[in-house]
């Protein structure tokens, strides 16, 4: 493999993503766990940069690190004994089965396109720009219906959250 900036970047982001993931599941401290989660998500944002998708990278940082992870820290701080968790998750057999199944699915999903009969589909030659993405989201023969449906769904969820959270009297 040629050692250039992209390869080095890929290694760095892989270490961040996987290391962050290992950090999340091994730490005994919930707050540190959320920080590790952010590290992992940051690594994923790096992958988007390497794939020439800067828009998705920025959205990844903005939405996942800037908003969702902050909300998780809020939730973590409202729980008791943030730092010293004694209980361990001990149901090893279901976890083993689930992780094995996930591993096999990923293995299948990754190896088949690379070594199978149809490798050409994996490499789109046209690099899409942010403008293309924006046009695809609002174009009639693009993704306008899924985009609108997602917007309606999010709005409905937000209204529902407000409805549940507000006081009975007012």
């Amino acid at each position: 493999m040629e050692l250039n900036a992209v390869t080095i970047g890929f290694f760095v982001f892989t270490i961040l993503t996987l290391g962050g993931g290992i950090g999340v599941v091994t730490t005994r401290n919930l707050f540190q766990g959320t920080i590790w989660l952010m590290v992992s998500l940051f690594g994923v944002a790096g992958y988007f940069v390497l794939l020439s998708a800067p828009f998705l990278a920025a959205v990844q940082v903005l939405v996942y690190i800037g908003a969702i992870a902050i909300l998780i820290t809020f939730a973590v701080m409202l729980t008791r004994s943030v730092t010293r968790i004694k209980e361990r998750y001990i149901r090893t057999i279901p976890s083993f089965v689930a992780s094995l199944a996930l591993f096999l699915v990923l293995l299948f999903g990754i190896t088949v396109p690379i070594f199978g009969d149809y490798p050409s589909e994996m490499a789109p030659t046209v690099v899409m720009t942010t403008r293309d993405l924006g046009v695809a989201l609002v174009e009639g023969n693009g993704y306008v219906v899924p985009f609108l449906l997602a917007s309606v769904l999010l709005t409905a969820a937000m209204i529902g959250a407000i409805f549940i959270a507000r006081d009975e009297e007012s």
Partner: peptide
């Protein structure tokens, strides 16, 4: 950057994280 304005918002949101930490 093609996404300059969005980049500004994304990076500035990291400041929140620093204060929380």
């Amino acid at each position: 950057l093609e996404i300059g304005a969005l980049y500004f918002v994304a990076v500035a949101s990291l400041g929140t994280l620093a204060i929380m930490t």
